[in-house]
Design a protein around this nucleic acid. Structure first.
Length: 645
RNA sequence: GCUGAUGUAGCUCAGCUGGCAGAGCACUUCCUUGGUAAGGAAGAGGUCACGGGUUCAAGUCCCGUCAUCAGCUCCA
């Protein structure tokens, strides 16, 4: 048979040659590193005979598919270890994930695992890996498979089989462990050289909170020990960026049960950065024709009954406040308030688009288990705006809103993924007519295509009143969070009876765009802190420069310098303690102050400063005029990534 | 909300099998006046998350509550 390689070259192989033999014929090294083989885009085990002419591609750990095979096989290995250590364990599913794998299992009565048990399982896995057991693929009848797992006493596998009646069933066997699995697997457990089990937690069977809670163990493995070491170092570095840790160290915010879970309190430095971000956006709003409004933190419950938020989201709202026969809700959304502003007077098509903006604080009763630093809270501020426009204006307005959101991410150099959040086929989740949905999804997609956004479509991710374009970022430890959002809404204009008078002197419904480039200030701050690892650029830093006199003799000069800088609008402090200069520098660096200005007698005599850039070091002496002009250059968003070289 | 772990000084953490509450950093005072990442000494600082229980005796064991962390479920 003729096999075609990825580079287009062809070679003849005996029929029923295996991937392993093919790899071996290329090089011994490839044979050692190969984990699987694509045969006409279908993944094969290396030991599986290839029957016909095909396009093939050998897979190693270097690529995603290789990692997937490797980690999925590792999940089987872990299951084998657990089954040996805790006989009677029943197994759910054990997939590869982005950075490793997990396996969900139902441990025998009375067995409770904690993180302390992980090294023991790791050791067992390593022992089994070293045995070099092969993964054997067994094709089997559906009935025989059910029979097998009945005997094995594993109800979860039988349930999985129920969903696979029409499929070809395969089992994989390595050592003493046999699993229902479609594969692919590594040739032998011996390729797994380094193992780290990361944590142990719980997960519902099939993700259904009504069903059995299973024990889930997460782990990661590598073909080389060094790769694990690198991974662990990276992970440690990432944890250092955690905004909860930095928020405390840099005194940015605090969360205390005395105020309430999920209700962050902003300390002076964090509040400063947040205000700075707000004014960054406000400058853009002026340029883009928005007008600012201010609305109260609570609103009549009827407002939310009209909008439909109340029935849809009553579970995640704070209970209504009853005052003199009226009920009020801590506002979970700003939109109904803004709609009142729209409808406060007759609107003409000449008034549109009307763009109402507000940093509006909203309150949602998130489940206690969901709360997480600043990324998931119960009170947060949206950089919200509602754009009321005509159909003709809609696409332009969506485009403008998306551009503003992109400006935010490019300014800070953040990597985002874009998702078109559309509805799924569960009609009770959504309001509005099919026509409205089809139209608004089409329009969103058209804009996304015209702007050449790279996006994926998230079915079922829409809000109840319309589809959205969401911008999603990752935090330091890889968790994904939605930040910016642009949403199309045909439903609220109906519900609130919003109208404008057209050029035809007839009444028409406007369309609404909900949009928030940062999303929530709290969540954005959390991501920003992690993104910069606390090293805020000059224009955002609460203290921009720390002035460090070497001895008491220079304090007077330092104070005068600081006063002059402050008069120019810069944020400088003087460290006048009787500490050695090394100490002062160390602390200024630890506080991640962008610039330290060291003042000795030489600098006083020559009206200059010795300049030290955070994370870079000493860049030499500059005159006071030079440093002032550098400060002016640095003090704007465009200088976020200023290069000091 | 669910499962599990954790909660000791402002911070980071030790405290064994129940027997006087500990360290480093930070803080205060004093000494030191220095050239690019932590000078020295002394002092002060605690309802061991909260509530209950067992015990002669509880930071330590048991129960409950709250909070935090990990994951699941949810997220306008």
């Amino acid at each position: 048979m003729i096999l075609t390689f990825p580079d287009g070259s062809q070679r003849e192989f005996a029929q029923n040659s295996t991937g392993f033999e093919i790899a071996k014929s290329i090089s011994n090294r490839l044979a050692k590193e190969a984990l699987g083989i694509f045969v006409d885009e279908v993944r094969y085990d290396l030991s599986r005979p290839i029957k016909n002419d095909a396009k093939i591609r050998i897979v190693t750990f270097e690529e995603e598919a290789g990692k997937e095979i490797f980690w999925h096989s590792s999940a089987h290995l872990m299951a084998e270890a657990v089954e040996l250590l805790y006989p009677g364990t029943k197994f759910g599913v054990g997939p590869a994930i982005e950075n490793g794998f997990y396996y969900d299992m139902d441990l025998p009565e009375g067995v409770k695992l904690t993180n302390e048990d992980l090294p023991r399982i790791e050791a067992k896995m390593l022992e089994l890996a070293q045995q070099g057991n092969t993964f054997q693929r067994v094709e089997i009848d559906w009935k025989d498979a059910v029979e097998f797992f009945k005997e094995d006493g594993d109800p979860y596998k039988i349930e999985l089989l129920e969903g696979l009646k029409d499929d070809e069933i395969t089992l994989y066997k390595q050592g003493t462990f046999t699993d229902l699995c479609r594969g692919t697997h590594v040739p032998s457990t011996s390729v797994i050289k380094a193992i780290k089990l990361l944590n142990i937690s719980a997960a519902y069977w099939k993700g259904d909170s009504e069903r059995q809670m299973l024990t889930r163990i997460y782990g990661v493995t590598f073909p080389k020990k060094q790769m694990l070491d690198d991974y662990l170092i990276m992970k440690e570095e990432a944890e250092k960026r955690d905004h909860r840790k930095l928020g405390k160290e840099l005194e940015l915010f605090m969360i205390t049960p005395n105020v309430g879970a999920g209700l962050p309190v902003w300390l002076p430095k964090g509040a400063f950065i947040r205000r700075k971000l707000e004014s960054f956006i406000k400058d853009e709003l002026v340029k883009r024709g928005y007008v600012e409004v201010i609305t109260p933190h609570i609103g009549n419950l009827n407002l939310y009954k009209t909008s439909g938020h109340y029935p849809y989201y009553s579970d995640s709202q704070f209970a209504p406040i009853k005052v003199e026969d009226e009920e009020y809700l801590l506002k979970p959304m700003n939109c109904p308030h803004h709609h009142q502003i729209y409808s406060s007077k007759p609107r003409s098509y000449r008034d549109l688009p009307l763009r109402l903006a507000e940093f509006g604080t909203v309150y949602r009763y998130e489940q206690s288990g969901e709360l997480n630093g600043l990324t998931r809270v119960r009170g947060f501020t949206q950089d919200d705006a509602h754009i009321y426009c005509t159909h003709d204006q809609l696409k332009d307005e969506i485009r403008n809103a998306v551009e503003l959101t992109q400006l935010v991410f490019t300014t800070f150099g953040m990597e985002v993924t874009t998702r078109l959040s559309f509805r799924d086929d569960k009609p009770d989740k959504y309001a509005g007519t099919d026509e409205m949905w089809e139209q608004s999804e089409r329009e969103l997609k058209e804009v996304a295509d015209e702007m050449e956004l790279k996006y994926h479509i998230g079915l079922g991710e829409a809000s109840f009143y319309g589809p959205k374009i969401d911008f999603i970022v990752r935090d330091a430890i890889g968790r994904k969070w939605q930040l910016g959002t642009v949403q199309v809404d045909y439903v609220m204009p109906e519900r609130f009876g919003l109208e404008y008078t057209g050029s035809d002197n007839q009444k028409h419904r406007p369309v609404i765009i909900h949009r928030a480039p940062f999303g929530s200030m709290e969540r954005f701050m959390s991501i920003l802190i992690e993104h910069f690892a606390g090293n805020f650029p000059f224009w955002l830093a609460p203290t921009q420069a720390m002035i460090l006199p070497i001895s008491d003799a220079q304090i007077e000069f330092a104070d005068k310098l600081s006063k002059d800088f402050k008069a120019k609008g810069f944020r400088t402090e003087v460290d006048a303690r009787s500490e050695k200069i090394n100490r002062k520098i160390a602390e200024s660096e630890q506080q991640k102050v962008p610039i330290s200005l060291i003042i000795g007698q030489k600098e006083v005599d020559s009206n200059s400063v010795s300049v030290r850039i955070h994370g870079k070091g000493n860049i030499g002496v500059k005159s006071v005029d030079e440093i002032t002009s550098l400060f002016y250059d640095l003090d704007k968003p465009e200088s976020t990534f200023y290069n000091f070289d």
